[in-house]
């Protein structure tokens, strides 16, 4: 089939992938918005989410689903992955970053610590789980025969679930941030930490919760990617992390809506590159986008939302 013929199909993949990038990008952008720090270990939290989801899946399959209806399997995988990644992200903040930024280290301090945490987590997973890839038995959950046909484009049930879960989580996060007292506190801390403290906000707690939420979203993305690609390994967080970071910068770092938009735009650009150029250029295209954004529009599509007051 010619390139134009497969374009609609590719766009669907691009959208699905983009939703995942957006989900991971939220974690980068939330942390940056509140601490002005890139959590380079975020890709590893995503990877660990994928492993936890895999573990739950294997366990359930071995237990013959333990009498559970198969429809509960994916929610259970997501729940466990989000819990583990979330708590791990919060621990990273507590033990690897907070000791540095509260002692007035330069902004480089936590950043380097994050790179270290990333290497540590990769190796920890490699040593405990082995270097060989693990296989998600997605076929048991989503048979290939489950799909819908829209205007000649085949959309599998799996893709629908992926996009659905990603959009649902983004919607919930947005609701939390925009409509609740906790969300208001998060925005207040992101905008002006000192004044937020004067309003009576426990700033450290809010930072910890931000890590918890962002990391949990990364963990959920890990499960979705595992289901989609069916193969995971300890190194998968590296390129996914860089892509999601690109998405966050593309949308405007610190900007939640920007992260979601940046993810989807990046996913679509990649799918176009795969369609019209050589599929091997997929990663090249993503990083060309990063470079172009940094050169021509460093504040991203929707603009950075980074507080002046916290830029010490």
């Amino acid at each position: 089939m010619d390139a134009l013929g497969i374009l609609p199909q590719q766009l669907v993949f691009g959208l699905a992938l983009g939703a995942i990038y957006g989900l991971i990008a939220l974690g980068y952008t939330m942390v940056y918005g509140i601490l002005l720090m890139i959590n380079f270990a975020h890709g590893e939290l995503f990877m660990i989410g994928a492993y936890v989801g895999w573990g739950v899946l294997i366990w359930l399959i071995n237990a013959n689903f333990g009498g559970l209806h198969p429809a509960w399997v994916v929610p259970l995988m997501l729940l466990m992955a989000m819990s583990v990644s979330g708590i791990l992200g919060m621990s990273l903040e507590r033990f690897a970053y907070r000791p540095l930024y509260t002692r007035g280290a330069t902004r480089l301090g936590p950043l380097i610590s994050a790179v270290g945490a990333s290497i540590f987590l990769q190796n920890a997973v490699m040593l405990t789980q082995g270097a060989r890839m693990k296989v998600y038995m997605t076929g048991l959950l989503f048979p290939r025969s489950w799909y819908i046909q829209v205007a000649g484009v085949r959309i599998s049930a799996l893709v629908l679930v992926m996009v659905g879960v990603a959009l649902l989580l983004m919607w919930l996060l947005n609701l939390l941030v925009q409509r609740t007292t906790l969300g208001r506190c998060m925005r207040a801390v992101a905008e002006d930490r000192e004044v937020a403290a004067v309003m009576g906000v426990n700033v450290r707690r809010i930072i910890a919760i931000t890590f918890l939420l962002g990391s949990a979203l990364g963990g959920a993305a890990g499960v979705l990617v595992g289901l989609y690609y069916t193969q995971i390994d300890f190194f998968m967080g590296y390129s996914a992390g860089l892509k999601a970071f690109t998405a966050a910068v593309l949308g405007g770092i610190g900007n939640l809506k920007g992260a979601m938009l940046g993810g989807i735009v990046l996913g679509l650009i990649e799918s176009l590159a795969v369609t019209f150029l050589n599929p091997a250029y997929r990663d090249v295209v993503a990083f060309v986008v990063l470079i172009l954004v940094l050169v021509f529009r460093p504040t991203g599509l929707l603009g950075e939302t980074v507080p002046q007051a916290n830029k010490v």
Partner: peptide
């Protein structure tokens, strides 16, 4: 002043009552 510029007036007042 250092009001929360990206929040609405009402949200700023609500932050004031947070304590």
């Amino acid at each position: 002043r250092r009001i929360f510029a990206r929040m609405t007036v009402w949200e700023n007042l609500a932050m004031g009552a947070y304590s």
